[in-house]
Design a protein around this nucleic acid. Structure first.
Lengths: 105, 105
DNA sequence: TTATTTTATGTCAATGTTGACATTTTAACA
DNA sequence: TGTTAAAATGTCAACATTGACATAAAATAA
């Protein structure tokens, strides 16, 4: 394939992908998953530390007890947005969130 | 457990939303917004640093150019999940993400 | 034990978010 | 000037996430 043709296809939005792309994406997905898990455990830790029940935390953030349970259970229906909102609502300080983001526990 | 009991439990001590709740929620919302804005600017910064066009970044994360544009424009339809995925895909290191979370720039 | 609280699990209609696409606007050039 | 790549904006059907609810299971108290 000529160079110009490749460029044309690429700029038209075509994926001229290879196995490397696939592996890289997996790696990035793994990073996101690790991040979520870290934040999830931070939520539970923060909630327990403040002696909040799931219902109380749910009320603070205007969610529901079952959502909190799903957050802590790592349910696939839970978004990163909700996890972070729970973390903030649970009283976690910026430093706690930072720590979770760097994987520290 | 019976139906009536659960309802009583769910609404126990929680009927009148007071001003404090409102202010606290606002504060938490503000914190989340600030977090998003910080991450958004980190995405753009990281993308530019790596000399990636919006199309290229979109391809890396299997999204679309318009989505990247909306991320960087702070479009309300963009989730925290997508922002973080873009940040990771753009090549940002864990330290960069951490920095974004602490508001550093 | 029994009673009460807390947490887990499943469902679903309403709402939110997505990639893809078309089109326009801006930027960077020759 | 005109050409071209990059970025911005609007739309929408498909898919994802939500709070609310019912109920079960587990933990805790009495």
């Amino acid at each position: 394939m000529k160079n110009g043709e490749l460029k044309r296809l690429q700029s038209a939005g075509w994926k001229v992908g290879n196995a490397e792309d696939f592996l890289e994406l997996s790696d990035e997905e793994a990073r996101l998953v690790a991040l979520k898990l870290s934040l999830i455990s931070a939520v539970k830790k923060s909630r327990i530390k403040r002696k909040l029940s799931q219902i109380e935390l749910a009320q603070k953030m205007k969610s529901s007890q079952s959502r909190i349970a799903k957050i802590e259970a790592g349910d696939p229906s839970v978004s990163l947005d909700l996890i972070v909102r729970a973390l903030i609502a649970s009283g976690a300080k910026t430093r706690d969130i930072q720590a979770a983001f760097s994987g520290r526990d």
